[in-house]
Structure formats: structure tokens, C-alpha cells
Amino acid sequence: MNDSYDGYRAVDLEVRVCAASPYELVLVMFDGLLDELSRARGHIEASHYELKGQSLEKCMNILTALNSTLDYEEGGELVQDLSRLYDYCLHRLVDVSVSLSVTGIDEVVHLLGQIRDGWEGVNASHH
């Protein structure tokens, strides 16, 4: 049962991505990333190392995609800060992949949660 649920979630995410404005797109990506991070955390705790690897790889792909959505022309200082933060999160996840440290994941979740909240605030001020 669980497998089909995951498949459904992936499709749902893709459908939402197709329908999303750039702002909503970033939020969808954040939600997908935070979901996947908690899944990776579960895999580490359950010692499912192969699944952990796949899960962390997905997280890194989403982070890389988030990084590529940054607008260096318009964004100025904020974009530089975000880019550095995404890079830091990527490095932490590479580290987690080896060290299997759930505190590393928690740190990334905490940082990304703050960015996501900020992003929602930005979105609110644009409407």
C-alpha cells in the first residue's frame, strides 16, 4: 500500500508544479523537500541505507533546483545569502549521507523551514 501512496504523492507534486506560479512553485518545492527530508530521517533511523541514499539524493536535487530559481539580476544581497544557505544545506546533506547524523537533517530542516516561512511572507506582500 505504501509504495502506491509515494507514487501518488510524486505525481501530485508534479501536477502542482505544472500549475504553479514561480512563487507557488518555490513553496511546492520547499514542501516537497521538507517531506523528503523527514522521509530520509526515517530511513536513517530505520537503517534503510539504500532508501536513505535515494531520499537524500532527491533532497539534493530539489535544493539544486531551488538554487537555480534564484534571480541573481534582481535579488541582490538576499539572493547571495539564499544561495549560500542552499549550498550550506547541500554540504550538510552530503555529510549526513556519510555520517548518518539525524541532527544534520534536523539542522537543514530548521534552516529551510525559516527560509520557507520568509518566502511565504514575500509571497503575501506580492498579492
Rank of each mutant, 00 (worst) to 15 (best):
G121K: 05
D6W: 09
Y88C: 06
T103Y: 07
L56T: 00
Y5G: 03
V26Q: 07
Y23I: 06
C18W: 09
E107S: 06
T103W: 06
S4L: 13
Y5D: 08
R9M: 06
V11L: 13
S99R: 00
E50W: 12
G104F: 00
Y49W: 14
C59V: 04
L85S: 03
F30P: 04
H43M: 13
V26G: 02
L66A: 03
V108R: 00
D87Q: 08
E36S: 15
A124Y: 13
L70D: 01
F30V: 01
Q114E: 10
M29I: 15
E120K: 04
H126Y: 14
L33Q: 02
L111M: 09
I62C: 00
Y8C: 12
H91P: 01
E57N: 10
G42L: 09
L93H: 01
D3W: 06
V11Y: 03
C89M: 05
N123T: 07
L56W: 01
L37Q: 05
R84C: 00
Y88P: 07
S83F: 01
E77F: 12
D35C: 14
G118M: 15
L112N: 01
S21I: 06
T103D: 04
V26E: 04
L51W: 08
S55K: 00
H91N: 07
R41K: 15
H126L: 15
R84S: 01
H43V: 04
E36Q: 15
C89F: 02
L27W: 05
P22E: 12
L90R: 03
R16K: 13
S38V: 15
L37W: 07
S55E: 05
C59N: 01
Y86F: 08
A124S: 09
V28C: 02
D12K: 15
L100Q: 14
D35Q: 02
N2L: 14
R16W: 09
Y86E: 00
L56D: 00
L111N: 07
H43R: 06
A65N: 10
L56V: 00
L56Q: 00
H110P: 08
A124M: 15
H43Q: 12
M29Q: 10
V98C: 03
D31P: 12
S101M: 09
E24H: 11
R116N: 04
H91R: 15
S38F: 09
Y88E: 05
G118S: 07
S4R: 14
S68I: 00
V96C: 13
G113I: 07
H127W: 11
V26L: 05
D95T: 15
S97R: 13
H126P: 12
S21C: 05
M60W: 04
L51G: 07
N2E: 15
L27F: 05
G76W: 08
A19C: 10
A20Q: 03
H110L: 11
C89Y: 04
Y23N: 08
V17W: 08
S68M: 12
V17Y: 07
R16P: 04
G118C: 10
L112P: 04
L34S: 12
V108L: 02
S83I: 01
Y72T: 11
I115N: 06
V109M: 06
L85N: 02
D87R: 02
L25H: 03
E107G: 01
A40I: 04
